[in-house]
Amino acid sequence: VLLLKIRATRSCRGISLKTQELYALVFICRYLDLFYSYISLYNTVMKVTYLATAFSIVRYMRFDKVVRQTYDKEQDTFRYIFLIAPCALLALVLNHRFSPTEVLWTFSIYLEAVAILPQLVLMQRTQNIDNLTANYVALLGAYRGFYILNWIYRFATEKHYRQWIVWISGVAQTALYADFFYYYALCWKANQRLQLPA
């Protein structure tokens, strides 16, 4: 959806480069297992797709002659360190196994949960949030939100399915969207363009 917006409108107005770069980092840290484990063709294709789209978005926003001029750097002020440092620290302390790949994987789970924050802050400052941006954020929130239903189903049907770190992070991630979803639903019902209160 986001690539569609960027390519169709030649603009990344209202999109946080910080959030996009954090997602790229999340995917790098999480999908290192592409090199040493295989689950299914679907799984591999989706991992490569996420990596490719994340890097493509960052490339457009940073280097495309036209698109990069529409990036509002002054408004996108969230500091990386405030998200990366706590997640890194937490991953070093709270993990299933103290190995490089496991800690990086855990770090990616924690970082994904909060990576949307720069985007949410930027949207609060944006007067006219375009529909594609609003829909993109809603889909991103719904994506992890729907996992919760899947986790409940798998917990009930699979014997050794316990992933506390993933579950708690996923619920926290979805909770961060609660406020956004509330206003998204209100505006959708009223058939109005999304506006977030300052």
């Binding site: 297992d33 484990s37 689950i39 299914s40 799984n43 989706m46 991992k47 996420y50 299933h96 196994r97 496991e102 994987w105 996992y147 050794h160 399915y161 316990r162 992933q163 770190i165 993933v166």
Partner: peptide
């Protein structure tokens, strides 16, 4: 035994 199980989610 890896107690996290197989990481089959994205």
């Amino acid at each position: 035994e890896d107690e996290t199980g197989s990481k089959d989610e994205l």
